[in-house]
Design a protein around this nucleic acid. Sequence first.
DNA 1: ATCATTTTCGCAAACGTTTGCGGCATCCGT
DNA 2: ACGGATGCCGCAAACGTTTGCGAAAATGAT
Lengths: 330, 330
Amino acid sequence: MSQSTTLKSISSLLNISVSTVSRALKNHPDISDKTKKKVQELAAMMDYEPNAHAISLRTNTSKLLGLIVPALSNFFYTSFLTALEEESRKHGYTLITLQSGDNTNIEQENLKLCRINHIAGLFIAISPETKNIDSFLRMEKNGVPVIFFDKVPDAENCNKVRMADEEAAIMAAEVIQKSKRKKILALFGNQEFSITKKRWKSFTGYFEKNAPATEVISVFVSSTQEAITETEKEMKQHEPDAVFCMSDEILAGAMKSIKKLKINVPKKVAVIAISNGFIPQLFDPEITYVETSGMELGKLAFNRMINYFNGQTTSQELIVPSKYVKGGSI
Amino acid sequence: MSQSTTLKSISSLLNISVSTVSRALKNHPDISDKTKKKVQELAAMMDYEPNAHAISLRTNTSKLLGLIVPALSNFFYTSFLTALEEESRKHGYTLITLQSGDNTNIEQENLKLCRINHIAGLFIAISPETKNIDSFLRMEKNGVPVIFFDKVPDAENCNKVRMADEEAAIMAAEVIQKSKRKKILALFGNQEFSITKKRWKSFTGYFEKNAPATEVISVFVSSTQEAITETEKEMKQHEPDAVFCMSDEILAGAMKSIKKLKINVPKKVAVIAISNGFIPQLFDPEITYVETSGMELGKLAFNRMINYFNGQTTSQELIVPSKYVKGGSI
DNA sequence: ATCATTTTCGCAAACGTTTGCGGCATCCGT
DNA sequence: ACGGATGCCGCAAACGTTTGCGAAAATGAT
């Protein structure tokens, strides 16, 4: 490794002290304009770049942010990451990206990596088994803010940003009700997720209250593959006239079976989904959906972090509203 | 920020020196088993975790790896990232993820972030305008290996890993030829990419050589939207009996137009693509494709990096073979 | 008991930066 | 000319770690 230019190398070339160089480069008022100019010019010439490790060590701060998600193969998380990376870069932060694989042990390992690298803040979508969030609260007590997103814990005393899960499910339910469909196959994700619970409760609750005659068949699946088999089974057995999918992965599976069985959409069966926005448009007709944008959530999460840095440290739960996107599937 | 436990805090509690604690924790033979035990037990009790910044500063090494991609909204890159993150974690490295937005300036900014954070190695898919790779070569000269992947420069004196672009295009061409189709709409990406050039040359070259009677209409598009409009135009104008798409984004656009025009696949028109593997299966019939797996490439790239760390520093170009996946679209 | 060897540990410097403090010049007002 | 204020800069410590070297203590050989 060839040595890069440091404050010291600049200082010795100019026969001034390291501290003067340091202050000159940050426009400290103690330094005369003449030396400032000298230093800054030489620094530019020598391509001086500060050593982040030295700064972190000395100041006990860093420009690193941590992100932990269950899996990046999930569209929602990659679009969250896309937005988060962009915002981070614009504000001078650098992102450390980690996957937990929905495994609590790996999640803790990743958390440790975050601590070791002394990140300035953490964004995390917790894995389903994670009940105990003490280690995260401890981070926050140590001055490292933790923003939970999407898959958030139930606890009150923490910062969360999430989609309007209840609202999204209700919007979908309303659309189905208006279409006069009477027998709905409702496909949800892993029952352990609070996000699933919220959506299920809102969706089924809506019909109980506003259209009790409507039959809602709730099915919980935890993979695209399972969505395929369950949809096929239910379509044959109950012949529903509407299908609701709470995520892109589930939608992909459900549509596979619907096409295989050659069931006409929307004539024979209406389809509506909650989605991140890309997948529904691949089908013909395009699937009507309620959008939960990972990018929007990413921006919001980053803003929350910045506000935390600026002193707003009391716990909040922020919610991104949903957006109805009309396709031709209902 | 509450202070974490350090070598010093451990040493003062045990009334021994910092250096002894340091050595005890790494099983240095100079330290007696008795003190080793004492130190390690206390360290475990106090949840000691080394400070990565201090280590990096002192040893001039780091466990950070950099990744720069044009955009994470591209499926291929997210699957590359998925694999790379996994491998990195397993080997004790932490990943810094950056997007360039296909912009040379941002790319250089990101490179600077990598230097400032003193990464141990860099993976990069360069943006199309990047002609001059001096800044990357300089990194390598400074001891930081650079692995170019997917979008690789033409230069010889650098390390590259990429998909078998020529082979993939030829595999697709062979399948089309066997299907006896005679007029092919071939959709390629941005003409600036070396990857596009390679695929175009191989694909058209194959027909010139093996089936000169076949008409190949090559069209270059640089977005899904453009793929939609161009496909519609070409389908109407030339009525091809086969469509070749060199990427997932293009496939999504092409299929949109084909469905809109209600053209039967595969009867009226055959479709074949080069793809990362998820999108083709969403259609009905499933699209036949040649797989270029981002995850495979990610694993290979990481391996190359490790080998570099172990002394294999001479430039290499590694290539992942393609895989033919049969659908029902041809 | 003596000396040589080995075991076990501590000292101190170094990595690159920031920052409180103190010191020397220079300047101003009287 | 004198005192005080001000401008400009350097010293040195500190962040947490690693590591060459030397020194003390323990062990072994004779």
